[in-house]
């Protein structure tokens, strides 16, 4: 059984599927970041904008991933590009919600103090708001990343390849070793993503915040 499993990993097609999976997830995540972060920055000082963004984000989060991917099929057709659009759309809500709440929850007193010290709006953003909000923003990106890697498994259903291909092949041909090889590699990829982004999140937390977190006993 174990050797059958390893045999699947050794197939020449396996690296192709793995590469497809990683490329699809990474590009979708980058597109989502490129859309969600600027929007969060633009609306950071408007109450209405933030409320709209958070509500859109919440509704977006309720949409099942399979629903978005499946809808991309009749609207955009089969293949890589429609899966990419669907996955990017799925990755936006968590980043948008975290980035706009993170930026809004920066203590007003700190911003007032910075303004009193003569800092410009841009300096307040890059020197104060962004560093303080960074852990929350990163938590959103991490959630999106793990979710994107998971949802990319479903890309197989709309003909966009990825490791989901192995699962489908395993189920259809009743090949348990192919099924498990697909399942384990996807699971491992998701867990690596979760842990990797966790490390990044800690790296992007400013020192001062870490001290404050420790004091609060977290």
């Amino acid at each position: 059984m174990i050797s059958d499993l390893l045999g699947v990993f050794a197939r020449p097609g396996f690296t192709t599927l793995l590469r497809e999976h990683i490329v699809l997830s990474a590009v979708a995540l980058l597109i989502a970041i490129a859309i969600a972060l600027p929007v969060a920055l633009l609306i950071r000082n408007t109450r209405v904008g933030a409320a709209i963004a958070i509500n859109i984000g919440n509704v977006g989060r309720a949409v099942p991933s399979l629903a978005i991917l499946a809808l991309a099929l009749p609207l955009l057709g089969i293949g890589f590009w429609s899966a990419l659009v669907a996955l990017a759309a799925l990755a936006i809500p968590p980043i948008l919600i975290n980035a706009s709440t993170g930026l809004r929850e920066v203590d007003k007193g700190i911003i007032d103090a910075a303004r009193g010290m003569g800092l410009s709006g841009g300096q307040i953003l890059t020197g104060i708001q962004l560093p303080i909000a960074a852990p929350v923003i990163f938590a959103g990106i991490r959630t999106s990343a793990v979710q994107t890697v998971a949802s990319a498994t479903l890309a197989t259903f709309i003909g966009a390849g990825g490791l989901g291909d192995l699962i489908v092949e395993g189920l259809q041909r009743r090949g348990p070793e192919i099924l498990l090889a697909g399942a384990f590699s996807v699971a491992l990829l998701a867990i690596i993503t979760e842990i990797g982004f966790g490390v990044l999140e800690r790296a992007f937390t400013p020192k001062g915040l870490k001290i404050a977190q420790k004091r609060r006993g977290r």
């Binding site: 479903l154 699962i167 348990p176 099924l179 996807v186 699971a187 998701a190 867990i191």
Partner: peptide, 18 residues
Amino acid sequence: TGILYSIPSLALFSILIS
């Protein structure tokens, strides 16, 4: 429970039916 949570659903389904 965190590890369980991060396993993609199609993968978890596949492992369970195996």
